[in-house]
Computed example of a mutant assay.
Amino acid sequence: MDRKLNALFLFIAVIVFITAANTTQQWNILLGVLLAAFFSLGAFVFNGLSLDGMFSAIVIGTFAFGLGGWELAVVLLLFFISSVVISDRSKSRDQNISQSVRRGGLQVWANGFWVVLFLIGVAILNTQIFLIGAIAAIATAAADTWATELASRNPGSTYLITNFKKVNPGTDGGVSVKGTTSAIFAAAMISGVSVYVFSLHFSVFLIIFVAAFLGCLIDSYLGALFQQNKRSVMLPVLNFEINFSNNLVNAIATGIGGLLAITSKMFFA
C-alpha cells in the first residue's frame, strides 16, 4: 500500500510542478525534492527509517518542503527527530525489543497522508486555512507518538478510555497521567513552534493545540473501540471488511485533528 501511495502522490507532485503558477514555485518543489531526499537518506543511514520508509518520507517531504516552505519543513523535522529520539530511548530500555526503531512506509504515511492532502489543498485552492490543517495533523501525530512512547516508561496506572477500567500498560486505548501529559507537551511544542515560524496569531496556537490533543484522544478511543476488541467494519455497499490496524487508526486520528483545526479556524477565528 505504501508503494502505491508513493506512486500516486509522485504523479500528483509532477502535475503540481507542471501547473505551478510561476517559476519560483517550480524551483521550490525541485528544492523540496533535494532536501527531502537528503534528510530521508540521513534518517535511513541512522536507522530512523526502513528503505520503504525512506521513499515514503521523500514523497511526503517533497510536498512539505516544496509547498509548505522552510517553515513547515522545520515543524515536520521537529516532529520526526523528536519522535525518533524518544522511540530510541524507550526501546533501548527493553531488552526484548530490537534496538532498531526504523519506521516503515505505512507508518510514515499514517502520519503524513493528511499533511500531503492538506498541502495539495493549499496549492490548488490557494488558501492558507489548509496549512493550519497540515500543522494540526503533524501536532496530532506528535501528541500520539509522545504519549505512546513516554508512557511506556514507568507508566503508572493505566485506564481504558472508553470505561476507565484499569488495564495493563500498553493496552490499545489505554490512557495514563504520564501519557496524557506527554501528549499535551508535544501538541504545545508543535503548535508553539508553528505559530512562531509562520508568525501566526496566538488564537491559531490554541486552535492547533486543542485540535491535536482531541485528535490524540480520538486515537486512543478508536484503539479501545476497535483494536482492543479486534473489531472490524463491513462496508455495506462495497462488501469490504476494514480491519483497524494501528496505522489506520493513526491516519484517521491525524485526519480528524487536521479537520478539527480547519473547522475551528473557519468558525471561531
Rank of each mutant, 00 (worst) to 15 (best):
V59I: 13
S40N: 10
F39L: 03
L67T: 12
L125Q: 03
L8M: 11
I60E: 03
S100C: 09
E71P: 03
A110N: 11
S40E: 11
I81E: 15
V175P: 10
S245V: 06
L206N: 04
A187K: 02
V16W: 05
A212D: 13
P169D: 13
F185I: 15
D2Q: 00
W109D: 09
A137D: 13
S245Q: 11
W114V: 13
I242Y: 07
V233L: 07
S152M: 09
Q25G: 15
F202L: 02
L238E: 10
G258M: 14
I256S: 08
S182T: 06
S90E: 05
R89M: 01
L217D: 11
G156Y: 02
A123S: 15
L8Y: 12
N163R: 08
N239P: 13
L259Q: 09
I256E: 05
I208R: 05
S92F: 01
N229K: 15
K166N: 12
L72H: 01
F213I: 04
I242D: 09
R3T: 14
I58Y: 10
N239T: 10
W146K: 02
F164D: 14
A43M: 14
V75S: 05
L150H: 07
F268S: 08
M266D: 02
I252P: 15
V45G: 08
S87W: 02
F240T: 11
L31A: 08
K4L: 12
G223H: 07
T171E: 08
Q128L: 01
S82N: 04
I60Q: 06
L119N: 14
L248S: 03
K4A: 13
V75C: 04
N168W: 05
W109F: 15
L30K: 12
R103F: 06
F113V: 14
G223Y: 06
F185D: 10
D144F: 08
T127L: 06
V75T: 06
Y159N: 15
V249N: 14
A37W: 14
G69T: 00
N247H: 14
Q228S: 10
I208E: 10
V116Y: 09
N22P: 14
G105M: 00
G173D: 12
S191D: 07
T23W: 08
D219C: 04
